[in-house]
Design a protein around this nucleic acid. Structure first.
Lengths: 174, 174
DNA sequence: TCTCAATGATTGACTAATCAACTATTGGTC
DNA sequence: GACCAATAGTTGATTAGTCAATCATTGAGA
């Protein structure tokens, strides 16, 4: 018997709207998935974001990708991409090289050591993903993917029409 | 035409499994929702987590709640609950009082100022939630909630059976 | 060719998250 | 009543996230 989100966070008053309830459920579920997966990769001494970078670089050619191109492909926005990659470089999991044709760009690529680390995580990752989302039937997974696609679409649309609510003048609180 | 997650992160190889794809889509979508909502509350000078605490305290009685009870109800796990509430107290949005019957506990409750701040956020929150998730039809929202419930259930189950993969001895990398 | 805005990336300063270690208090149990 | 594990919360040390400011390089125009 699945717990509804209202019970789970012991909420006393009902949600103002279904949208609000969905937003909360979405963030709470994602946090759980994030932590489950994060627990796996941290056993290898890297964070989830670092793992994400390594995966991106494995999927790109041997030349690698320029720094900001990696940032764009991240699952979670990462303004601190430079230092994130600094840490990966310090662990010898990625290598950086300034591009010769456009010296502004820095190409990053995954090292053999980095590829080995990813390999060692293949099986535990498969396992945790299966236990978290593998219980859903094929049809539910498809529904979920479709709904999430639509949601991201809506957010993108909202962000481009109203030039985002972020970064307005701060109130007195800080 | 909604973008599939594979296109969005410009992934070159297909996902290993539907579960993996769903996990990525879930985290990416949640990050977007999180940032959209976060942008709204930050205009009031508080973070999303701080907003969450205020909402929890508004929903509890005038006596408030003990510190760790708040932590349990958070949407996202928050080990730094003490300092999170420190900041809210510094802004005079919550008040703390040590419990007289069990002096280990510290009850936190929202101040009038805190309630006022929440009120001022009601309308912008409603608006951002509506633009992000309000485009989904009633039926899709119900499906989403159901699927997310099942997913959280599965993660809880997995965490209690295998005593979580977290906190194992670190590898050589750091 | 000289300027100058645009692009790509990095750094600084600050804030927040994380985990382990610690203190204070309580409720048993001998 | 003394001991002792369990509970509630805090603190220290470290790491990571955030935003603005900065630097180097490029490409387009005057």
């Amino acid at each position: 018997m699945p717990l509804r989100i209202t019970d789970e966070i012991k909420q006393t008053r009902p949600f103002a709207s279904k949208s609000a309830e969905a937003a909360v459920a979405l963030m709470r579920t994602a946090d759980l998935v994030r932590r489950a997966i994060g627990g796996v990769v941290e056993n290898a001494g890297i964070t989830l974001q670092q793992y994400n970078v390594l995966r991106i670089l494995r999927g790109s050619g041997p030349k690698g990708l320029p720094t900001l191109e990696i940032a764009e492909r991240m699952i979670e926005q990462a303004p601190g991409i430079t230092r994130l990659i600094d840490r990966l470089e310090a662990k010898h999991l990625v290598a950086r090289e300034r591009c010769s044709t456009d010296r502004r760009q820095v190409f990053c690529c995954i090292t053999t050591e980095g590829l080995g680390l990813l390999d060692s995580l293949n099986e535990p990752m498969r396992s945790v993903e299966a236990s978290a989302l593998g219980t859903l039937c094929e049809e539910h997974v498809s529904q979920l993917l479709g709904i999430l696609d639509t949601t991201r679409e809506a957010i993108h649309a909202a962000m481009t029409t109203s030039p985002q609510a972020n970064h307005q003048p701060r109130s007195s609180h800080r």
